[in-house]
Amino acid sequence: MGLLSISSLTKKFGGLVALKQFDLTVEKGEILGIIGPNGSGKTTFFNVLTGMFRADEGTVLLDGTSDNLLDRKTHEIIGMGVARTFQNQRPFSNLSVLQNIMVGGHCRGRSGIFSALLRLPGAGRERRRLEKRAMEVMTIFGDRLISMKDRSAWTLSYANRRRLEIARALASDPKLLLLDEPTAGMNPAESLQLLDNIRHINSTGVTVLVIEHDMNFMKQLCGRLVALDYGEKIVEGSYDTVRNHSRVIEAYLGKD
């Protein structure tokens, strides 16, 4: 029993089947890569996992519980330990870097409107704790985010927005981190750095699922890969197995 066991996950958009009877087990502590051509259902998979789309069928069990993740509401899922980043960068543009990350810690807080109005000590303690956690998370990226913690998110560079999204997701103390094309918009040096960052995150006990097109990056990062095409799993296994599988080559390059 892994951290995440997915069975017969299906998602349809009208007549289009974006995910078809998808089965997958993610082991605790691994870094699993997901590859596939554009439109093969990778991002849809993340969207279904995080409750942004409703799945048509299937079960997703997290960490050995018998509680189907797909029955949960969108906002409950992060609290269960699944956090994500977005392919088309979506930081909260007009919030500062620190505030962005603190939103990530929202699910780990409890204080409501009355404790805020009355300024109860519990609310203050909680706020300081979330702030401390946000600062901690930022240190993963060295000085990159900390030096900009009070800047509005929209003033950041592409690479820093990617880092910000990862930090925001981590602030929720996830068991499973979903990264959707984390290197898009980064230069080679920055990608390399990110590789170390993700390994570091993984070493702290966070299981990572990553979507990426850069095969070289995936080769270095992932212990295991899954290839998707037309919403179906073609193959899963080590980098070499997947890379040399005939249907993967076919999916990327077409039949000859």
Binding site: T74, H75, S93, N94, L95, V103
Partner: peptide, 10 residues
């Protein structure tokens, strides 16, 4: 700022 993302963020 972005309600879909806010929902995903809990």
């Amino acid at each position: 700022e972005d309600e879909d993302v806010a929902a995903v963020m809990g």
